[in-house]
Design a protein around this nucleic acid. Structure first.
Lengths: 134, 134
DNA sequence: GCACTCCGCTTGCAACTGCTAGCACAGGTG
DNA sequence: CACCTGTGCTAGCAGTTGCAAGCGGAGTGC
């Protein structure tokens, strides 16, 4: 019984993953205000396939994600993260990378990290404001 | 004739890509001094398939690469770069981290990377000036 | 000789990926 | 009305991916 529930949950989790990347792509496409066919053309993939991806029916390869990212004018990495291919390391991948960068002075590092934190704060408060309005 | 040569070259280029990741995996495995079967077991993929990958006969998905990376105890990103899924960007770690950060908008990412590149350019010219004095 | 373990590889197959042809619907034009 | 363009989706298919079963070879111990 417990094992069955565990398998069911795993299946649902996988299905959710497909929906995650599909929802994300649809959202970005909506933000860009282009139709499914337009994005498919920009990305160089077939529009039925893009439709299936958005609805979580198919799981695209990294190459297809790369093409979709190009069509959306966003980084492929962002799509990889949504697809679970690339890890989004919480709390500090950017911080770590900046601090470790030997081509920057310490002062420049601080400036960069200040800008980064400012952006993050802006996005966090905008996110809270959205939640408050709803 | 020209078109045929162009197609041939494209085919060879694709085959080379397969050999690139395959050679790289074999090399890492050799460094780790483990057999193909041992790595396959550690990675959780079938050993015939791993063999085919190493010989460039098959093109593994990102998920399989992730598993192989785990078995080799190396980062998945290193394999993605070899497979052409991920770009190895100049100034890599910072750029990669910024692009993959889902808490930033695409515009903020560009701003941050612009600042970063500006700093690096400053340091590069300062570095050249130092070299000239020496 | 035999049986066993390890090695890397071949083969055939099921499931999956990405595509083409085409559908139904909505809106606009003459 | 017919025709056109645009929209997102269905269905069937060819090619690809990843696997299991099994092979031949090498080495070891009885």
């Amino acid at each position: 019984m417990d094992k069955k529930n565990s398998v069911d949950q795993a299946v649902e989790a996988v299905a959710d993953l497909g929906r995650d990347i599909g929802d994300y792509i649809r959202e970005q496409r909506s933000n860009a205000q282009i139709s499914l066919r337009q994005l498919a053309k920009l990305a160089g993939v077939s529009n039925p396939y893009l439709s299936q991806i958005e609805r979580g029916l198919r799981k695209p390869s990294a190459e297809i994600l790369q093409q979709i990212a190009k069509g959306l004018r966003i980084s492929a990495e962002a799509l990889y993260v949504q697809a679970g291919i690339l890890e989004q390391r919480v709390g500090g991948a950017v911080v770590d990378a900046v601090l470790a960068d030997t081509e920057l002075t310490e002062r420049q590092k601080q400036v960069l990290l200040d800008v980064y934190e400012t952006f993050r704060r802006e996005n966090a408060s905008k996110h809270s404001a959205d939640a408050t309005e709803e």
